[in-house]
Design a protein around this nucleic acid. Sequence first.
DNA 1: AATGAATGAGACTTCATTCAT
DNA 2: GATGAATGAAGTCTCATTCAT
Lengths: 211, 211, 211, 211
Amino acid sequence: MTQSTPLNPRKRPKQHRSRATVSAILEATARVLVEDGFDKTSTNRVAKVAGVSVGSLYQYFPSKEALVMALCEQHCEQMLTLFGDMSLALLDAPLPVAVRTWVRRMLDAHRVDPRLHRALVHLALHIGLENLERFDRRGRELVQAYLTQRADEILPTDLPLAAFVLCTAVESITHRGILEFDDDGIPWQALEDEICAFVLRYLIGRSDDEQ
Amino acid sequence: MTQSTPLNPRKRPKQHRSRATVSAILEATARVLVEDGFDKTSTNRVAKVAGVSVGSLYQYFPSKEALVMALCEQHCEQMLTLFGDMSLALLDAPLPVAVRTWVRRMLDAHRVDPRLHRALVHLALHIGLENLERFDRRGRELVQAYLTQRADEILPTDLPLAAFVLCTAVESITHRGILEFDDDGIPWQALEDEICAFVLRYLIGRSDDEQ
Amino acid sequence: MTQSTPLNPRKRPKQHRSRATVSAILEATARVLVEDGFDKTSTNRVAKVAGVSVGSLYQYFPSKEALVMALCEQHCEQMLTLFGDMSLALLDAPLPVAVRTWVRRMLDAHRVDPRLHRALVHLALHIGLENLERFDRRGRELVQAYLTQRADEILPTDLPLAAFVLCTAVESITHRGILEFDDDGIPWQALEDEICAFVLRYLIGRSDDEQ
Amino acid sequence: MTQSTPLNPRKRPKQHRSRATVSAILEATARVLVEDGFDKTSTNRVAKVAGVSVGSLYQYFPSKEALVMALCEQHCEQMLTLFGDMSLALLDAPLPVAVRTWVRRMLDAHRVDPRLHRALVHLALHIGLENLERFDRRGRELVQAYLTQRADEILPTDLPLAAFVLCTAVESITHRGILEFDDDGIPWQALEDEICAFVLRYLIGRSDDEQ
DNA sequence: AATGAATGAGACTTCATTCAT
DNA sequence: GATGAATGAAGTCTCATTCAT
């Protein structure tokens, strides 16, 4: 997996004009990436869609990979702001509250740009997308920490395994749910409730919030 | 998504040698696809790895896409044989038994060739892989049918939603579980048990098999 | 000077057709290289001049560098055949004979393709041209060996220095002489005689062959 | 070889700052040229190394070629000042003195900036470098003039040929000698003596200064 | 005067596909 | 049936040069 491709952005845009250019390029990248996938995303097409020349693109991003990584970084940051300092606040919250908050945040985060998210997740397999992977890893660590603290309230005993099961399931349901329901009318609330129910039943065997 | 690429295998190999050739090509395709991903899989390289000439490859498969679709078909068939007539037998089985059987089969199916499975799943996004999609769709229909029959024993009430949640979660946990544990020593049994527990608790609030 | 560019020819042409292709490509390379210099030699233009497609070029040569190195190898081999087993025969020859033979061979070798020779020599600075450099090094070693054997007949005492002086001078006079006189009517014989005279006078102070 | 590229410096820098800028640019050009060769010398990089913007560079030099030609001019002038009025003074000097002076000056001139000299010489092949060529031509004319005046003291009879042989040999030995010995400890004196010896023996058959 | 953002032709190289042998 | 040589469109990336600020 050694990458000899240059990956870091080439220069920070200083003037007003260039900042606009960089924005346009990133937006175009997102669009093309979602439509065509990474390998069929050509830098020429990105440039054309962005309304700039290839040269300009390469002035800011030294390679196609770097372009996508920058996009990923931006996307991850947007998602992360939605989580804010959630983790801290929740360590002491009772299970139903914590779960509900977590699930809602996950849905929010995935709603930021579901298609792009999917494209990036798939991309992460081919080229390393450190941000995204850190995102996942970090999430699982937090969940495991929370479970550890509540170890005597919950049914699962193998906590790393439980964290894996929970994160994988919630992530995939959220992810696919958003994409699948995107086209139909969207029963967001029902989806959210169902995910919460499923998490709580897994952890404590029941899911009635009021109990 | 209209495809103008020819997709159906060019001719059924009837002679002995031909069948060997086709096998070799498909095997090579699997190897290269797993290693390099679809776009970097070149037909020339596949041919070389298979030990035949490009010309021969194109004698049996009219395009790169056709090549991969044939591979997908083969893979799906292998997975399907593992499920056999499961569905019929299980419609009347009690929940714990049905769940255990289903989960075990899922794990078995994913173990057939996890890396290839992953590669194909990812591929399905860019080029249609009818087989794979049908596989998923069919699975969900069966689950929903089963749930419908047991509607009064289980907690979820929105059965399509429940089927979606179950299938998505089980599929992703199985999939990632296999890949993630592949490199380490592999606690298969623990994984299987945990998935069963999680499914049962979701459906009926508890997971003790003996109860 | 680490080269990560692939340098070795890609495959030996086996069929008749391909051998012709490779020849055409090498010939075209020589022409374009001489006309435009290495950096302005574009593989596309070489292909066009050779009357083949770029693809064909890259089937046999994995990079522009490899192309030129192959050409260099061919050129060096042609030059070397002109020297044959000269070295052995001359170790015992008297000075005037040895010098005359050496100089004549040098002129012959440089006449093979003077412009190409010049282009390659210049190229050797930018990309390593092992063949050419070995050619030079080997030549100087032979000269020094010869001088060592005749040490008591000759005037110079610092033999490595003398070898350097001789080889450098003879090479450059030959080289430039051929190129310069190429356009005019060519007093080959006069040039040859003068080089011999100059070498002999440097070594023993006089140059009359008959003495 | 018709050049449509603008070649003359755009304007003479008159103010103090401008002159500093131009100097910086030329220095940077020399550095980059020596390191990377002409074709890989990019004006953008030169500008960056010089610490100015490309725009500024193009304010003073209308093209890459012009840039290099200006550098060549500067280099040639530096070399020429070392020769000073040598020619006049030497016409009447005895051979050993004249030769020694000439050789010493050649070595001095080549020591000014050997790597740059080499780069420029090589460049002269692809783009015309009038200065450098005039330098060579002029040198040979002077030598020939000197030989003509001493025609009855020397052995060679074809004086143009003798001038060619002398200039080519001395130039190449000097040039390569400087570069080759540059890295090692440098026996300058030995080199100078040997060149003188070789020239004198060629001209009069012996080289003992004192005789 | 200076800056540096923008341009786009053109370089190298790959690879799906065809077809003469 | 098989071979592998040939094709050329298309992709990534560079760099000389211009021009708005």
